[in-house]
Design a protein around this nucleic acid. Structure first.
Lengths: 162, 162
DNA sequence: ATATGTGCAAAAGATTTGCAAGATC
DNA sequence: GATCTTGCAAATCTTTTGCACATAT
């Protein structure tokens, strides 16, 4: 269970700067609620939902940010490259994870116990680019999730069948 | 725009047989509603939603199958290998496509116009298996979607910026 | 006969939207 | 001051569930 090292203070500032840049480009205005959500998201260790952000977006005065505001802010955070949407986790809703200043990775999920492993394959990334080019596309992103059963779950299966 | 050739009558029968096998294995019973949904799905050319299946699941007497029944049937169709769930298409809901007797493929989507291209890379499939093995997993499935901008959309962008 | 399947309505979730009040440029 | 933002409530949408009746084994 590798814990993703979090951004330090300087990293947070760079991330906020990236957000402000996008906000400015779009002719929008600075707002503290938006930055509260961004900080909550950037500080989050693993995968999180909108609900999680609502709860953790409290500031010193314990002001929460409403869910609708979080929903309105998310597209900006994605566009600024602070977060990525992920589709791991079975039923439950939509999850996100930090993308800013973090190496890209995809996920391998156990359909038995839900364990999630991160992986990265430069070979796959390369083939993806080739595929895109061959169809005249310029890649802007991708999502790639592998599903399978982990060793532990296969053992468990064997027992219960015995 | 390559149209996926559809299953012929014999193929439909093989698919229904696969469904019946799963149904029997689970100790469930034969039902015509389930087969109506299966047929509607198998006959569908491209990508479709639950709503689409409801509309097209009419039989000779124009009996529709209720959405709740479609929802209850889908897991069986997936398990029987008749369909696959896909995550292409931006906002809109969940889509499915036929998987039975059809070569596996993934999708490349244009974020500008929504065009969807199917691709297949044996090299990627191979690396996926290697990755899974390296983490002690046995693969049961995956979803892989590339996003980018197609040639036409890039041209359009250039014009409007001009 | 008994257990499963289906239609229908209601419930449950997640996300979006309209609006009045508050913040920013 | 004009315009963007936010909180809040209500509206939407998709999917799930409870139940009474229909159907299959």
């Amino acid at each position: 269970m590798k814990k993703p090292h979090s951004l330090d203070e300087a990293g947070l500032q760079r991330a906020l700067a990236a957000l402000r840049r996008v906000v400015r480009e779009k002719g929008l205005r600075a707002s503290s609620a938006r930055e509260r959500v961004a900080l909550a998201a950037l500080r989050y260790g693993g995968h999180f939902t909108v609900e999680d952000l609502v709860r953790r977006s409290k500031d010193e005065r314990l002001e929460e940010t409403h869910a609708s505001t979080v929903y309105r802010t998310l597209p900006l955070l994605l566009e600024a490259g602070l977060l990525e949407e992920i589709r791991v986790h079975r039923d439950e809703g939509t999850f996100y994870e930090r993308a800013f200043e973090r190496e890209h990775h995809d996920h391998l999920v156990c359909v038995g116990c839900g364990a999630v492993v991160e992986f990265h394959s430069e070979e796959i990334e390369e083939v993806q680019r080739e595929v895109a080019v061959s169809f005249g596309f310029v890649l802007t992103g991708h999502s790639h999730e592998l599903r399978g059963t982990c060793t532990a779950c296969r053992e468990r299966g064997r027992e219960s069948r015995a």
